[in-house]
């Protein structure tokens, strides 16, 4: 299926995602702070942190191999490339085929794999602990995510995200069926796991008992850490965009007005999902690691039921 989303628009959307990513993190942090009756840092704090990191020097562990230096580069590249695969402000497949939902999940998995490999390089127990836990949760999240994608792909006959979004059309809210509700519920269960937030992971702590993702970043410093942090922000917004592309896309709309409308709608959708994440983070405690599979099991059941409803 050849689409009409020019390559330039795809690249602009990708850059937009990278630029807005830290803002989403800042917004969630601000909302969390307000919910906890704190003033909190400004929503632009992640940008300041990034700017600081990219200006700092580095301290590298003496046991690391040559791979360690290039890990942040590859992780950032893979995550940003995943950002090129989600439709942001306009639905429809790109004019030249790039990748589909499976490719997007594959690129995110590549970034995760490389992060885990990098964590083992420094030879500290914290990195290994983080890598081990992350690589325990990831294989459990991936099949459920894949099933959620399939539950919408079965209806559209394609796994290309732009085409999936276009298939739903502009009046998606009238056409939602039980399968969509269940699929969306599964996605909401997965969202904290995929973005590394409570109740699966805690992004605010560096305490070895509670952390997953942050543990893997401990040995990175300076610009390398900046790259990893930017990749985390990008990963979060890419995941949120994936949810919106699958469940409430803005349909194809031409012209500058359509693009503006799409951008506005995108902002609203991301804000809604970010609010959800902030609310969940503020109202739940982190789960024990070995409770997480049960938690993800809820998502699995929802996704399987959604698929069954779609296929039967």
């Amino acid at each position: 299926m050849i689409g009409d989303r020019p390559l330039a628009l795809v690249l602009v959307e990708m850059i937009l995602l990278v630029l807005v990513g830290p803002l989403v993190t800042g917004t969630i942090q601000k909302m969390k702070a307000r919910l906890q009756c704190r003033q909190g840092a400004g929503v632009f704090q992640p940008y300041r942190d990034l700017a600081k990191l990219f200006r700092k020097g580095t301290v590298q562990a003496d046991t690391t191999s040559g791979f360690f230096w290039s890990i942040p580069v590859l992780v950032l590249a893979a995550t940003v490339a995943a950002g090129a695969l989600v439709p942001v402000i306009r639905a429809g497949p790109p004019a030249f085929p790039l990748g589909d939902a499976v490719m997007l999940l594959g690129l995110l998995a590549l970034a995760r794999f490389l992060t885990a490999v990098g964590a083992l390089d420094a030879g500290g127990a914290f990195g290994g602990m983080g890598a081990s836990r992350e690589m325990t949760i990831a294989p459990l999240v991936e099949p459920v995510l894949m099933m959620v994608v399939f539950s919408t792909a079965v209806a559209a006959g394609t796994t290309e995200l732009g085409a999936l979004a276009a298939h739903r059309g502009t009046s998606w809210f009238l056409a939602w069926r039980a399968a969509d509700f269940l699929g969306f519920a599964a996605m909401l269960v997965l969202l904290p796991a995929e973005t590394g937030r409570i109740p699966v992971d805690n992004p605010d702590t560096h305490l070895e008992l509670t952390m997953l993702h942050e543990g893997m970043l401990l040995e990175h410093s300076g610009p390398g850490f900046g790259c990893m942090a930017l990749a985390s922000h990008t990963r979060q917004i890419v995941t949120l965009s994936l949810v919106s592309a699958l469940f409430f896309p803005i349909g194809p709309a031409g012209g500058a007005a359509g693009l503006l409308l799409g951008a506005g709608a995108f902002a609203v959708k991301i804000l809604v999902l970010a609010t959800f994440l902030a609310l969940v983070e503020s109202s739940y405690a982190k789960l024990r690691l070995f409770r997480v599979p049960q938690y993800l099991g809820v998502g699995f059941v929802c996704a399987l039921t959604a698929l069954a409803l779609r296929i039967l």
């Binding site: 299926m1 990748g99 290309e160 085409a163």
Partner: peptide
């Protein structure tokens, strides 16, 4: 009518 296309080369 419908289908999926990816380009490993482009990615």
């Amino acid at each position: 009518t419908n289908g999926t296309a990816i380009s490993m080369t482009m990615v």
